[in-house]
């Protein structure tokens, strides 16, 4: 999202112009949440709504969300669809290939908890069983607007991140909750 100057921590008028003072936390988080590049990675039905979000009517790029085909360039992974057991291993590998800091949005009922396939023998009941999730987005499938809302929620989360304890992760990892099983 764009920057609202009123939200800057401090603006001082100096002779010859004004100068904006900000904390490094603010600047880093601001640049980070303004250009969140997701991985082009669709699993099932939700991927079609994800594509619709990138397309004409919704135009996700105005929020700085621009899909990247390789995990090496991606900041956020939309897990858009059912996670089958055969797909679990590739997902962990793709997640590990993403550079820190990395975020995950579990899009749709399947990625949250198995959704309509809650009793299937072949489905991982929620992607949080295999990788850490930052935002859970319900819906089957969620509308493109809902995906945008999830990104806004993630941006809110990023704005609270601190550089001090920073090892490339959100606050959760510092407590050990983000360790991969």
């Amino acid at each position: 999202m764009g920057i609202v100057l009123d939200n800057l921590p401090k603006i001082e008028a100096l002779p010859g112009g004004s100068i904006a003072l900000a904390t490094s936390d603010f600047l880093i988080n601001w640049s980070r949440n303004s250009s969140m590049w997701p991985l082009t990675f669709g699993l099932a039905c939700c991927a079609i709504e994800m594509m619709a979000a990138y397309a004409s009517r919704f135009d996700f790029e105005r929020m700085g969300v621009f899909p990247r085909p390789t995990p090496r360039q991606a900041d956020v992974m939309f897990v858009a669809g059912t996670v089958a057991k055969k797909m679990a291993d590739p997902i962990i590998r793709i997640y590990k290939q993403m550079p820190e800091p990395k975020f995950v949005i579990a899009m749709g009922g399947c990625a949250n908890c198995g959704g309509p396939f809650y009793d299937s023998y072949a489905v991982v009941k929620g992607v949080d069983k295999i990788i850490p999730v930052d935002v859970y987005l319900p819906g089957c499938p969620p509308r493109p607007e809902a995906l945008m809302y999830a990104v806004i929620k993630l941006q809110e989360k990023i704005r609270k991140m601190k550089v001090k304890n920073y090892h490339g992760a959100t606050a959760l990892q510092e407590t050990g909750a983000r360790k991969l099983s």
Binding site: L43, G81, T82, A84, P90, F117, S120, Y121, A122
Partner: peptide
């Protein structure tokens, strides 16, 4: 990679 066991369900 997207086998969901649909026919069994």
């Amino acid at each position: 990679y997207l086998h969901r066991g649909m026919e069994k369900l």
